[in-house]
Amino acid sequence: MCAAGYFGEVLDHPFPEPLPDVDADPHADFVAPADIDLAEALDFVDRAWAHADASIAALPLRARGRVPWWSGAAADVTLEPLLVHMVAETHRHAGHADVVREQLDGSTGLRPDASSQPDGRTWTEHVAEVDRTAREAAERSTSP
């Protein structure tokens, strides 16, 4: 569920716009509807986070809420664990996007000249080495 759900509905600070209907489609909050364009989707995300920021600023860390899509005692929460949960969620999903970006542009690390490889090679050099090794292995396996 998006930030507007966690920092809105859960904490009784409802987001003033309709949220994705996850009852009808459990993945609705992960996919933008086909009838909206990228700018509209990004504007929605900006409004949802602005609402979340306002809720976070207005409430104490001990503000109580209930996460209806969680089960059992874990569903009864305060703002504090919701913040931790959203940091973890953002980290996990941003990490997924980072893997895709690395595959697209070949860059890793904090700067273009930085390397995340322990031997100091750049990501491009590392990928080239892995590719060369894979090709050589494939050639050996097809040779008589």
Rank of each mutant, 00 (worst) to 15 (best):
P81F: 01
H85V: 11
V100I: 14
R92K: 14
H126V: 02
V84N: 05
R62H: 14
H85R: 11
S115T: 14
W49F: 15
S55F: 01
S116A: 09
D113I: 02
V84C: 12
H91E: 02
G120F: 07
H91G: 11
V67K: 06
M86A: 01
G95K: 01
A94H: 09
G109I: 10
D53K: 08
V87Y: 03
R121W: 01
L79C: 03
A128M: 05
E125A: 06
P68D: 13
S71D: 15
A138S: 14
Q117S: 11
H85F: 12
E136N: 14
L110W: 15
D76M: 04
I56C: 05
W49C: 02
L82M: 12
E139W: 09
A48H: 01
D119Q: 06
A54D: 12
I56A: 10
E136K: 07
E125P: 00
D98L: 13
P112E: 10
P60C: 04
R132F: 05
A54E: 09
H51C: 07
A88L: 12
A52E: 04
V77P: 00
S71Q: 11
A58I: 00
V77W: 00
P68E: 13
R101C: 02
Q117F: 07
P118C: 07
D46Q: 14
A137R: 13
V67G: 01
A75Y: 03
W70K: 06
T122V: 03
H85I: 06
D131Y: 06
L110G: 12
S55I: 05
A50L: 04
R62E: 13
L110V: 12
H126K: 08
H126S: 08
A50M: 02
Q103G: 15
A75D: 06
T122H: 05
A75F: 00
A97G: 15
R135M: 00
R111L: 12
D98G: 06
A52W: 00
L79Q: 04
L82P: 00
P118S: 08
V100S: 10
H85Q: 06
M86N: 14
S71K: 15
L83Y: 04
V84T: 15
V67D: 05
A88K: 09
D105Y: 07
V84Y: 10
D119G: 04
R66T: 14
A97C: 10
R140V: 04
P60E: 07
R101N: 04
A48R: 00
E139Y: 02
A50C: 06
R64D: 14
D131S: 09
A50F: 01
H93N: 10
A52Y: 02
W70F: 13
R92W: 13
A75C: 05
L104N: 08
G95C: 02
L104P: 04
G95W: 11
P81D: 06
A48I: 07
W70V: 07
D98I: 06
V45F: 13
H126F: 11
G65I: 00
V84G: 10
D46G: 11
P60D: 12
A94E: 13
E125I: 00
V87A: 15
A50W: 02
P118M: 00
P81G: 05
R111M: 08
S71P: 09
A58M: 10
R62S: 15
A63L: 05
P118E: 04
A114Y: 13
V84H: 15
W69D: 15
